[in-house]
Design a protein around this nucleic acid. Structure first.
Lengths: 180, 180
DNA sequence: ATTACTGTACCGTCTGGACGGTAATGTCAA
DNA sequence: TTGACATTACCGTCCAGACGGTACAGTAAT
């Protein structure tokens, strides 16, 4: 769990996401990942004994990264909701490399995504208790989820202008009922 | 395009979605689909000469079905936005069998989903011109997209109560600025 | 001696797709 | 009406290649 020795681990995880984007989420092969990571197949299987373990690591990596970024964004400003909006906006504006990796995980077995589901639920609970008065919390949460999923699928139909408007609306609708 | 003879075609399409749900989106095999459809592999390949063609048909099927349902919902009530909200709500409450099929398509190659992307864009344009005054149109659209994607991924974190509240809020926010 | 690999060889299984049938149905001239 | 042929809608088999995973000997650094 703690950052440790394994030199290749991170390279492999990154390579997996890259390969997934290139060959399609459902066509991720260990051979390709190993090659892309500059690691032998034996080396890959040393770090991740099975493909399933690699997938789980991909998910775990995403979850911990997201939570770390959220904590970081929180220190910038008090409101959790605002932090979540800001982070989602950032995740949508810049291309998130790990996204393709998550699609590959889902292609392998959707159950591997359960940690992300519980991450979302945990976040929603925290948001509810942090901003009990926000009547539009659910809408904002769902809208951000929509934005995020569009990016994930490369299905974002908004123009840049529309997306800016949308994010601004979300921010103002958050600011209107900020708390804690 | 017109409903015609092909007896096995529809069975195969339905079987593909079922199999995808059972074995995971990335593990859809033609053999399994053929068996599930009660058709030989040769028969499957007769209807869909390649796997890619099958995937495209899955997408096309979804698009045409959605548009037909939207037209139908439109006749019930004038507002396009309201019809879209209602349809999304329906799609979220009942399990949509074809959803798993779309995930399989994406696992194969995300580009196959482009018709759905343009469907969404077309819909957004129609919504904008039908309800020019609705300032919250983008938020509603994104929120519905979020709801839909959660169902698609089996990542719906809302309780039934929350989901009802959300949908009610969306509907009222739509009704507040209805037009055309 | 342990850790973190490399490299090669290999195995059993699965997969998309090609291919050669074939029974039923339709078409059309004699 | 009939026989000849064409098309449709499929069946069942086969195959080359890719895949996940194993096994194991070697190695360079700690």
């Amino acid at each position: 769990m703690a950052a440790g020795r394994p030199h290749s681990r991170d390279k492999i995880l990154a390579a997996a996401a890259e390969v997934a984007r290139e060959v399609g989420p459902g066509n991720l092969s260990l051979d390709a990942v190993a090659y892309r990571a500059g690691v032998s197949k034996g080396g890959l299987l040393y770090n991740f004994p099975t493909k399933a373990k690699l997938m789980q690591a991909l998910v775990q990596d995403y979850v911990t990264t997201y939570e770390a970024q959220l904590d970081q964004a929180m220190q910038g400003q008090g409101s959790l909701l605002a932090a979540h909006v800001a982070l989602s906006a950032k995740e949508c504006s810049e291309t998130v490399p790990s996204a393709a990796g998550l699609l590959a995980v889902m292609a392998e077995d959707p159950d591997f995504l359960l940690p992300i589901k519980s991450l979302k639920r945990r976040l929603l609970d925290r948001l509810k208790s942090a901003s009990p008065g926000a009547s539009n919390l659910l809408i904002v949460f769902a809208a951000l989820e929509g934005l995020r999923s569009m990016k994930l699928f490369d299905m974002d139909v908004f123009t840049d202008e529309e997306r800016e408007t949308l994010l601004a609306d979300l921010l103002s609708s958050v600011g209107a009922a900020r708390q804690s």
